[in-house]
């Protein structure tokens, strides 16, 4: 009898293993087919001096060496860090607040939810154009309002000074991204069983304690993951900075993605563009590795 039991259990494990592999295989197969070639291509070309239209010859790590010696590269790294940290912080904080807000039983909750998701749904290019217009010192509405409320004396060139420009791109990125975090966390909040709150309330917990013991653990995973995804996306974000400032003024908002584009398409130097892109791999890979570690541990 015992032997029979073990035999069944063993085959169940194998069955589950096979099932697991079967379920994950579409994703893995797809990503392998479509992404492996690009990665290898990128790695290879970054070791050449390829320009658009030419074959390019192997130059080893020259591109990378040039980059490391280039102060503009390091300035871009610094800008990227500032941009990402600021934008992600804003998005996560306000996103969680937004989620908590929408979880309450407010009037017209569905309508409000739909409205708050709008910034995310507008094509990036279009929303950036509108922000550019709003920030404009020529006929922009922001300057108009500030002037009329006498908050400032003369029009501010929001995109003209390095720090203001960085603030502007961070703002636009955060504006777009807050709904993403907000709705993602909200969905996590909605998965929480209402009875848990009841039980906690009966046990005498107040609002803050309930938040800490019920809400927070439940949305921890979702929030962490939303943060990871947002961070990765923010690091690769290109359109917003490119359309608003093209990396200016005087490289004040030049981040790695715009730098890569500048090399690749303004200078037609694809080898170098890829080197910029690939150089941020290792730190990012490590970041992803550690943050997803806990996610992957099964209890």
């Amino acid at each position: 009898m015992r032997q029979g039991y073990f035999f069944r259990k063993g085959s169940r494990q194998t069955h589950l293993r096979r099932l697991g592999i079967a379920l994950i295989s579409p994703v893995v197969v797809y990503m392998l087919i479509v992404m492996v070639f690009p990665f290898i291509w990128a790695l290879f070309v970054s070791l050449t001096d390829k320009k658009v239209g030419s074959e390019g010859s192997f130059i080893g790590f020259q591109n990378y060496v040039d980059l490391i010696k280039d102060p503009l590269f390091w300035r871009s790294v610094w800008n990227t860090v500032i941009f990402t940290v600021a934008a992600v912080a804003l998005k996560v904080v306000f996103g969680v607040i937004m989620a908590l807000l929408l979880n309450e039983r407010i009037v017209f909750r569905n309508v409000n939810r739909a409205l708050l998701i709008l910034p995310w749904t507008i094509p990036t290019m279009v929303s950036v154009l509108i922000w550019q217009w709003i920030f404009s010192d020529i006929s922009g509405v922001l300057n108009y309002i500030l002037l009329n409320l006498n908050i400032v004396e003369e029009r501010i060139g929001f995109l003209a000074s390095r720090s203001l420009a960085m603030g502007a791109v961070v703002l636009v990125n955060a504006w777009r991204g807050i709904p993403f975090v907000g709705i993602s966390v909200l969905a996590g909040l909605q998965c929480i069983d209402g009875t848990l709150y009841e039980a906690a309330r009966i046990d005498g917990a107040n609002v803050f304690q309930r938040f800490r013991s019920v809400t927070l653990p439940m949305i921890k995973n979702v929030t962490i993951l939303a943060t990871i995804v947002t961070t990765v996306w923010t690091l690769g974000d290109f359109e917003i900075v490119w359309v608003l400032t093209k990396g200016g003024p005087a490289n004040g908002t030049q981040i790695l993605s715009t730098l890569s584009y500048t090399f690749g398409f303004m200078n037609m130097d694809i080898g170098k563009a890829l080197a910029v892109a690939l150089i941020s791999f290792p730190p990012l890979a490590v970041l992803i590795h550690f943050t997803t570690k806990r996610m992957l541990d099964q209890s």
Partner: peptide, 9 residues
């Protein structure tokens, strides 16, 4: 010129 002329596109 405009105050933000150095960033005109």
């Amino acid at each position: 010129v405009a105050p933000s002329a150095v960033n005109w596109d």
